[in-house]
Design a protein around this nucleic acid. Sequence first.
DNA 1: ACAAAAGTGTTGGAGATACACCCATGA
DNA 2: TCATGGGTGTATCTCCAACACTTTTGT
Lengths: 244, 244
Amino acid sequence: MQNVALNKTVPNASAATFDLSVDNVVFGFDGEKLQVLLIRQGLPGEDMESDRFHMAVPGDLVLPEEDLDEAADRILSTLTSLKGIYLKQFQAFGAPDRVFDEKDKEWLTRFRPNPDRRVVTIGYYSLVSISEYRPKPSSFASRAEWCPLEDVPRLAFDHNAIIESGLQRLREDVLQRNIIFELLPQKFTLGQFQRLHEIILGKSLDKRNFRKNVKRMEGVVPLDEKQEGVLHKPAQLYTYRKPD
Amino acid sequence: MQNVALNKTVPNASAATFDLSVDNVVFGFDGEKLQVLLIRQGLPGEDMESDRFHMAVPGDLVLPEEDLDEAADRILSTLTSLKGIYLKQFQAFGAPDRVFDEKDKEWLTRFRPNPDRRVVTIGYYSLVSISEYRPKPSSFASRAEWCPLEDVPRLAFDHNAIIESGLQRLREDVLQRNIIFELLPQKFTLGQFQRLHEIILGKSLDKRNFRKNVKRMEGVVPLDEKQEGVLHKPAQLYTYRKPD
DNA sequence: ACAAAAGTGTTGGAGATACACCCATGA
DNA sequence: TCATGGGTGTATCTCCAACACTTTTGT
């Protein structure tokens, strides 16, 4: 926060100005796969299905008087009309060459007041239960869609890298905090719960051992209810209540 | 990275510009206590010992073409003339009211080209073995000094909070990665090693159990050397070599 | 001799791992 | 009846926590 090397009281002529944005990696779980929420945004007059759309993680510039967490929350809630979603800042991305693709530059020219300005973005990840939120199929020129993690296409800017490191951070955090329940629907089966663990941790777990651990977990309570309409033995449903 | 709610192609009039800085929480271990590197910077003509100095964590504005990690490294190496120090980005601080103290505002007026501009800072922490670096006692108008964590005074801006969350993050990271050795001198005793663990984890450990764990650790190798000049039984010295 | 930290083993309990078969449902 | 995931118990091993006394040096 101060000029370390240069012991001068003269304003530093080489000071840069930055735009600041927040990008939000929204993870969702549908009972089978881990998904990410992507935004497909066409330039006006363009076909949404065309090759020239802009695909990215939801994000926006931070407003002049806005806190970073606020910005992340605003972006998410305008997009999904869901409030109170779990949100976590995980990393700032500030490489000077974050924007190098011509298509990205063109997009900035259309949507940004200062398209040439260097922009640093703060990465957040957030967790949503897909069964409790399905994005509206379309809204004007932009459209949100779930995309399975393994099928994520080439995205704008450095968004592929942002997703990657968001996922890495999620992996680390899951072991520490009780955030995994944010991804589950209110009522879930132990099968779903185990699958989610396996996906996030990236390894398969023993069913019986997993269930023993769940029994020892606080907050996971069985309901008087079973799955219906499945083509196998219906599973016991569970829910999560925050302990204390 | 795009205007989510506002489906407009018109530049957003409310876009803000930011200054971006990097602040570096440098942790050091002297064999006894965990310390932080602080910068004492006087306004010109002021007594360094006076009450009106500016005390802060080392930091600076990010240069126009500079990557964030580069900036952190530059700040640290101009300050300590040490290269290759362990550096880790841990958190962005961007509250709109980060700068509210009158003294801080005054300081910005003297040292910053755009003192009123909102500034967001990226927090890094870094780890240094104190015995391998003692800051030069003074350099012109600024001075770096080690300060034991528990004695850190009221600092500029939100730097107390930055140190606090840097420490918290260090605690989490230590359990996962082999970074703790960055804080130790090249040759260390198991006593120092244990004390360092105890400080970072914030609890005391059993000596025999700790030493059993060390034996199971990869990379910690005993040397043919003992402590000298201590007023008790001299300890075996160890060193750390990265496995593989 | 004394002070101060170094060094050293054993035991009991808890948690992790490995492993295989029957069950309920819908098609 | 078949395919699909649901559901269950035991034995072993490894890791963790608790615990006290002797050793070596400098003063």
